[in-house]
Design a protein around this nucleic acid. Structure first.
Lengths: 237, 237
DNA sequence: CGGTAGATTGACCAAGCTCAACTCACGTGG
DNA sequence: CCACGTGAGTTGAGCTTGGTCAATCTACCG
């Protein structure tokens, strides 16, 4: 009874039978959460570790002015808040996009697993490092890329992540993000996102409708975005 | 023979004599590095852990177009790349701003210290979590704050960090960042930074000249920036 | 068949960028 | 001791990217 979380970790470290069993035990009872539901809210004390087994979610923060900024997307297999128990409270919220299957691992189990199985710990550190690299890549996008570049870059990021976790056949993927969500991730307005998407469609680089993305011209998209796969292509030394 | 790194960690976890001695041993031979020198370049294989004992540095990435985006400032006491040895190569560069005193801790010593002294490991994890929170705060700034808000927010962040490591008396600090560097951190042009700084000076919130920053009206600055100290005020649970 | 959420369009506006000149502080060589 | 060079900071004028506002369209749903 594997799942997307286990599959992801298996790509980041060699895991044997006992490790796999431990991971299965600890993710055996996921809950189904409906779409657009906060899993964690800013200011909450840290609870259990959450793992997204199926569906999409995002980390976000809302400003005094009421605008929202999304700081990361969580796709199937992604976990949040590995070490957050060391801090007093959450500094941001997490919300589902789609209906999602979420496993919760309580702190004690998590700590025990991390100390008993160093390989699991290692895989999770690597996952966290990749996430951190992604945060930095977002900073670069928001700071120094034009809006077309930004949109193209995000699409490529999500697409490559989907390929890696086998959610994509290499050309097509489900992208269940409304334009308003893309806007809040990219620091733009929905109106402008809309125009940029049209531009990308017109240019022949992508197709996107009804939540299905199709990369028609990967080279063009890469070129437009100035994408440097480096930050996602981390592997074990 | 304490130093700023040790002092910082002492605020994040209870450290006893043996821990302090281990930290001293491992940072006993810092090197002096001149200003504007790359410590690490994108694409390098991961080397030893670097610790800034004195001086300022920043993480950055340069885009194909030649523009630069700064992703974090390193102040005295900050370390880089705790776990980077797990990855194949660096995805960004690090450069000094001022002359700096840098200790290098090789991987073996670091691993041994982290396993022998769990409290040191804990302190370093907390430090990393705070850094991650800072990355997310930058994303929020770049995505959703106006330029005045952005500048005010960064100034406050740096000021509060300076206070915490006792580099500031609570009103004044040295801020050795040229406007071009601020621009590359905030995703703006030097010209615009200049105008915004004048605006902040005119409003009576700050004084800033010759690398010395004085916070004249903290309340005003906080208000302008919409600052939420939460993300820096992390403490042990 | 009306209701709703998301996508799309158009007209207008403004924050922030570009380019280019100029100032100022400071250090160096004559 | 002073002219000059250099790097940072400052200023002005004009332009562009992306935002605002408001209407419209479309797919889907009870």
């Amino acid at each position: 009874m594997s799942n997307r979380f286990i599959e992801k970790l298996r790509k980041l470290a060699e895991l044997g039978e006992p490790e796999l069993r431990a991971l299965e035990r600890v993710t055996a009872h996921p809950k189904t959460i409906r779409s657009r539901k906060d899993l964690i809210r800013e200011g909450d004390p840290p609870g259990p570790v959450l793992v997204v087994l199926e569906g999409w979610a995002f980390r976000y923060k809302v400003l005094p002015s009421g605008t929202r900024q999304i700081m990361a997307f969580l796709m199937p297999g992604d976990a949040c808040d590995l070490h957050a128990n060391m801090l007093a409270e959450m500094d941001h919220s997490i919300q589902t996009v789609t209906e999602a299957s979420i496993a919760t691992i309580n702190r004690a189990d998590m700590n025990e697993m991390m100390t008993s199985y160093p390989r699991i710990a290692c895989a999770m550190y690597v996952a966290q490092l990749i996430d951190e690299g992604t945060l930095r890549a977002w900073i670069v996008s928001l700071g120094r890329r034009s809006s077309v570049e930004r949109v193209a870059h995000l699409i490529l990021e999500l697409f490559l992540r989907a390929v890696r976790i086998e959610l994509s056949d290499g050309t097509t993927m489900e992208l269940p993000l409304p334009q308003a969500v893309l806007a809040d991730a990219l620091g733009m307005t929905p109106v402008h996102i809309n125009r940029i998407l049209q531009e990308l469609r017109r240019s022949g680089a992508i197709e996107l409708s009804r939540g299905v993305l199709r990369i028609k011209d990967p080279a063009a998209l890469t070129h437009i975005s100035g994408f440097d796969a480096n930050y996602l292509h981390k592997r074990l030394k």
